[in-house]
Simulated scan of single mutants.
Amino acid sequence: MGDVVNLNRFRKTRDKAERSKEAEANRARFGRTKAEKERDRLDSQRRTQTLDGHRLDDET
């Protein structure tokens, strides 16, 4: 016979881990300085322009 497991404790531990993972993702997404956001925006814009500049035809 196996050990007795408190299902409520198991659920609470699992939910806490999920909330922690979501909080980590939110910190990465929203916890950036204005300069970091601007740099990422400019990088994205530059990549888009470079990709568009290498198109073979003018149809989009």
Rank of each mutant, 00 (worst) to 15 (best):
2 G>W: 10
50 T>R: 11
26 N>M: 12
47 R>P: 02
37 K>F: 08
25 A>P: 00
18 E>C: 02
30 F>K: 14
11 R>C: 05
56 L>C: 01
47 R>C: 03
6 N>R: 05
49 Q>I: 05
34 K>A: 11
27 R>S: 13
7 L>N: 05
28 A>G: 06
13 T>R: 09
40 D>E: 14
45 Q>A: 13
23 A>E: 14
22 E>A: 14
14 R>Y: 01
8 N>D: 11
26 N>Q: 10
17 A>D: 05
33 T>R: 09
5 V>E: 08
37 K>E: 11
5 V>R: 01
42 L>P: 02
7 L>E: 07
50 T>S: 13
57 D>C: 01
56 L>Q: 07
2 G>F: 13
55 R>Q: 06
32 R>N: 14
8 N>M: 04
38 E>F: 05
58 D>R: 07
28 A>C: 01
50 T>P: 01
12 K>H: 06
12 K>Q: 11
33 T>L: 07
32 R>C: 15
20 S>A: 12
28 A>N: 13
29 R>I: 12
18 E>T: 06
52 D>A: 13
45 Q>Y: 08
26 N>W: 05
20 S>K: 09
23 A>R: 10
33 T>H: 06
24 E>R: 12
39 R>L: 10
40 D>T: 06
50 T>Q: 07
8 N>Q: 11
19 R>N: 14
2 G>S: 13
31 G>N: 07
14 R>C: 04
49 Q>D: 09
17 A>R: 03
7 L>C: 02
1 M>A: 15
23 A>L: 12
40 D>K: 10
27 R>Y: 06
46 R>C: 06
45 Q>L: 14
30 F>L: 15
3 D>H: 14
60 T>R: 02
23 A>F: 03
51 L>P: 00
56 L>V: 08
17 A>N: 02
39 R>K: 11
25 A>N: 07
51 L>K: 02
9 R>I: 07
17 A>T: 08
23 A>N: 09
56 L>K: 02
38 E>R: 14
26 N>D: 11
44 S>Q: 10
26 N>H: 06
56 L>H: 04
45 Q>W: 09
59 E>N: 03
53 G>V: 03
14 R>D: 08
20 S>T: 09
23 A>V: 02
11 R>Y: 05
23 A>H: 06
57 D>G: 04
39 R>I: 14
20 S>V: 01
58 D>T: 03
56 L>G: 04
50 T>M: 09
26 N>F: 05
12 K>M: 09
37 K>M: 09
27 R>Q: 13
46 R>L: 12
6 N>E: 12
12 K>S: 08
40 D>M: 15
9 R>D: 13
59 E>V: 15
41 R>M: 15
34 K>E: 15
52 D>R: 07
19 R>K: 13
19 R>T: 00
13 T>S: 12
55 R>F: 02
36 E>A: 07
6 N>C: 14
44 S>N: 10
6 N>S: 15
32 R>K: 15
52 D>G: 01
17 A>F: 00
44 S>L: 09
23 A>K: 14
21 K>C: 04
